Amino acid sequence: MATVYEAADLALGRTVALKLFRMDTADDSGPQRQSGEVMVLASLNHFALVTLFDAGTEHIDGVTRSFIVMEYVDGSDLRSRINEGAVAPAEVARMGADLAEALHYVHAKGIIHRDIKPANVLLAPSDFPGRVSHAKLADFGIARLFDATHLTRTGSVLGTAGYLSPEQALGQPIGPPSDVYSLGLVLLESLTATRSYPGTAIESAMARLQRQPEVPESLGAEWCAVLAGMTAREPGDRLTSADAAVRLRELVPAGSTAASVADESAPADDATELMAAGLTVSGDEPTRLLPVAPAAEHTAKTERLGATARSDLTSVPAPAGSPPPRRSAARIGRRPVIIGALVALAAVIALVFLVQPGDPAPEPPAYPAVEGDLGTHLQQLQESVTP
């Protein structure tokens, strides 16, 4: 239906993918389908979908050609990766969860892909620790809205024979479960490096109507359950794209994206560098204690107590792997003495500045001497009022 080129966007200075549509499409609905792809791609925005930048028409050799400009993924595709051998289960689980989440996103917008296959899964290289690549679903060239007019000729089937759902093979109406089925076959092939339904288009279509895809028990009970749920014969029995995304995410080993952080035997310097880089263990991983870094040799600062007390303490470096060094016993024992001295000093200052001596008591007035009983009574009165 089209040819894809690597191209240069001269206006923005970036590399893009240019998809140029052929004019000799298999049916009369080529222009409609091309326009539909542009509309579909322009409305989608998800990390696991190829992004559309531009679209239009161009006159080439006197002929009007339609084109779209898409995000350029500088990597390989899943078909090439499978040709090298089976993919690690953890990588397949992450990739499958991302793609299932993307399908949930497009299905919520009333769109089905209809041609999910390894060649349409692009692998963008990833430099994140523990992750090889990020999967992006491409080629919505035959996607259509649920309520759109049927664009396919009577009796014809759009899609790739080896990954058609049973309802596609029978020419029946299809919906979101069809994409889930195709994704299940893609993931199974990724794990085993073996296509479930090989052969010609007719052989492949007939085979899926006669038997279920073979899921090796060696993959484990969890993988068998998920893949069986995605490739059930009846559409109503299959997992939804959202359920598949959750189940696949659960198959990702906890902490596999930051395994070096979870390794308790790692040197303390490495652990410090990982923490500085902001790497964390998966939320399902229990809290772990990082190794204690050896105490560096240093000399404590001289501390001043009042005007005379002075102490120089030198810490001894702790051996590697030992618990953090305790505070010096002398420093711990001296703390109550310092506090007591400060309290006593505060009391002295309070006495000096707050309690001032009073004025001396005034001398009692002198009275003239009086003889007789009157003199005796005056003396008694004077004594009674003397402070």
Score class of each variant (00 low, 15 high):
V385S: 07
A135H: 00
L99W: 01
A262C: 06
M1F: 02
A102L: 01
Y5S: 12
R65H: 15
L239F: 07
V63E: 15
P216E: 01
H113V: 01
P267Q: 07
L122I: 07
V180H: 03
G56P: 05
H377I: 10
A262V: 03
F128W: 12
L99F: 01
Q380R: 14
P368V: 13
D115F: 01
A244C: 04
A88M: 02
L49D: 04
F21W: 03
H59N: 13
T257M: 12
K19Q: 04
V215A: 08
A320W: 11
E214L: 13
I338W: 10
S322M: 14
S190Q: 00
A108S: 13
Q379K: 15
R14F: 11
I174L: 08
E363I: 11
G56N: 08
L239H: 03
A268Y: 12
D127G: 12
T272E: 11
V261F: 02
S256Y: 01
E91H: 03
R79H: 11
V348A: 15
G321F: 08
R131D: 04
S165I: 09
D243W: 03
V106T: 06
V16M: 13
S328G: 12
V106D: 00
R22H: 09
H107Q: 06
A346R: 06
D24I: 01
L145A: 13
D139E: 02
I112K: 02
V252A: 00
D269V: 12
T308H: 13
A119E: 11
A330P: 02
Q34V: 15
I339Q: 10
P216V: 00
V246D: 05
L52P: 04
Y197S: 06
T314Y: 10
A8L: 14
G283N: 02
G321C: 06
H104Q: 08
G171S: 11
L123V: 11
A346C: 14
D61A: 15
A138L: 07
I111C: 05
A242C: 03
P387V: 08
A347Q: 04
I68V: 15
P173H: 05
P89D: 05
G155Q: 09
R14V: 15
L52H: 05
Q32E: 10
R288H: 08
P324V: 14
T25D: 02
P267D: 14
D147I: 11
Y5M: 11
E91K: 00
S165T: 08
L342Y: 00
E167L: 11
D127K: 13
G110V: 08
V337S: 10
S178I: 03
